[in-house]
Amino acid sequence: MIRGMTLPVAATLLAISAAALAATPGNPETGRQQYEAKCGGCHSLDSNRVGPRHRGVIGRRPGSVPGYAYSPAVKALGGVWTPNRMDQWLQDPQKLAPGSKMYLTVSSATTRRDIIAYLQSVSPPATKKPR
């Protein structure tokens, strides 16, 4: 199928596919199931376990849950957890924050999107900055 296709055409098609995937909203219910299966070994919504609790994580400052012993790498991240940043984290936490405690990667973009949609559904809606 790709035979004879020029590099610019192939690159454009790949970019369009990636953009389309990123623009598709995740499914929070599928994300809940994926969260329980893939994240539930170490995380819960309301308890700090091997990893910190997740309710409210989207929009929260990294390394800010009371009572959880974060790595210096996560504490140093700054900013807040946005969906895009969470996507980068789930792709490779050691790339985003080398030396952090998490090593698990979620390779499927669809799965990451659904998990992030679920985490957004259990996080307060983003508030506008006061003018």
Partner: peptide, 17 residues
Amino acid sequence: TRLEQGAANAYVGQIAA
């Protein structure tokens, strides 16, 4: 059951690291 499923996934998901 939930914890065992989470543990199996956690281990598989870290092998690449």
